[in-house]
Design a binder for these strands. Sequence first.
DNA 1: AACCTTTCGCAACCTTTGGTTGCACTGAAC
DNA 2: GTTCAGTGCAACCAAAGGTTGCGAAAGGTT
Lengths: 116, 116
Amino acid sequence: MSTTVDDELWSAIGDPTRRTMIDLLLADGPGTATSLSRRLPVTRQAVSKHLAVLDRVGLIHAEPAGRERHYQVDEAQLARAVAQLSAVGATWDARIRRIKRIAEAIERTRHNDEGE
Amino acid sequence: MSTTVDDELWSAIGDPTRRTMIDLLLADGPGTATSLSRRLPVTRQAVSKHLAVLDRVGLIHAEPAGRERHYQVDEAQLARAVAQLSAVGATWDARIRRIKRIAEAIERTRHNDEGE
DNA sequence: AACCTTTCGCAACCTTTGGTTGCACTGAAC
DNA sequence: GTTCAGTGCAACCAAAGGTTGCGAAAGGTT
């Protein structure tokens, strides 16, 4: 039933701003709160909070560089997160397919009954 | 960069309680707010609100039956949602792989330079 | 050294959202 | 008709996403 420890991972990825931030970090390489905020519709402080969340769940990690803090995606952790995403998706897919099979079986039975 | 209309879909699926509710509806078939709340650590009213959210984004739909409202997963919509999930995952995976390729290329270049 | 600029972190505040309790309503069953 | 289970609506609370407004520290300029 999927409700376990990785809930924090989901809610980390669930936020659209955070998802875009991950996109930007992957596309453009490491960045700071300020550099990210320039490419997002939110303030630097909001970005900073999101970075803290992503850092806490381990999806990114910071590297202090002088007066700046360079954030960078932890590829292994993100890969793990993606795997969990698709796991849930796969589960749902499987259940949907099972339901459809059952529905078809019932359909067939009904036809047989009518045919008698 | 993935930040489009389907944000509501993500945030619908992003909530752990709502994910579990979808799980339950898929596993046990249609259910009511009350029946779901009995299998969840939240009150009926909370479940009711979540059902409203899922209904609004089209992942489930209600079917009034006497004094009860039976909710049921819209398989087509859920399949669409799952597809979007895995699309984002695939994008990230692709970017991670690209980064790794580039990193390896740099690594090779460095070795060549040292070799001269 | 003194100054200005940039980046950051912290605190206060607002709004939305997930959750609660309480109550009034309605359909079914006795 | 009374009772009982299921629903909906409203008020309220806490946490999360977002804002503005500061003060502090690292870097570049003169």
